[in-house]
Every structure is written in C-alpha cells, then in structure tokens.
Amino acid sequence: MPTLTNDMMRSIILDHYSHPLNKHDAPNSNYEKVHMHSDNCIDDLDIFLLVENNIITDACFNGVACAISTASTDIMCELLRGKNVDDGKYIIEQYHHMIHEEEFDESVLEEALAFINTSKQAARIRCATIGWNAADEILKDK
C-alpha cells in the first residue's frame, strides 16, 4: 500500500466522521452487541458484529461519539466485514500496535493507517480504540 500523506490521512478521518458508512443500529437481533463508554470522553457507543460460521459478515455501531472515535470505529467496521475471526483479531492487534507506537503489520490496516498520529494527543488514544476494544471483546472467545 502506498504511504499515506498527511492530507490523505486527514481527509480519510474527516470523511468517515462527517459521513460514516456504518453508523446505525443492528438491523436484526442476530448481531452481538457490546456497549462502551469512555471515562475521559463523551463517547457512549454500541458496537454490533454479526459473526456467522467463523466469518464476520457485518459490523456497525451507533451512539454519541467524537470525531476520532466515530471515524476509527467506522473504518474498523469496513476492515472487519467479510474477514474470518482470526484475521479480524489480527487486524485489531496490529491496529493496537500502531496506536501504541510499536512495530506493526501495515499491510492489513488500509485506511486505519490514518490514525498513526493518535499518540500525539495521548488523551485521545481511548477514543481511537474504543470501537476496536469492543470488537475485540466480542471476538476474543471465538
């Protein structure tokens, strides 16, 4: 994947914040839900995953959220959709490595690479990971 420029990263985040693709309630009750709220931000979200036959067939979220949590969760939904559970877990793990400035496999993160600068604003790490932690919670026992 070509390196993203700052301008590209900005427009990815703004785009997913202003026009999230996956910000809606689960369309039916087959989805597994985890509720997350942040102790240092207003973020108060439900994350929904539909896992069928070891495949994450759909992902969406809804609630009150800041720019960083909205965009990062929206991108996560895009990334997880269609992946098998192990690949999904791997993507989440690599994302966490990136956020915490550790070595990571950038080949799987696609647009989520836009959050590489999150640690510049350490107070917002929680926002950039809130949706990802929720998905991890659902996938961890699978």
Partner: peptide, 8 residues
C-alpha cells in the same frame, strides 16, 4: 482550524 490539526 480543523480539529485534525491536533494530529497533523
């Protein structure tokens, strides 16, 4: 300024 200036 844009809210994302904080990161970029």
């Amino acid at each position: 300024g844009n809210i994302l200036d904080a990161y970029f």
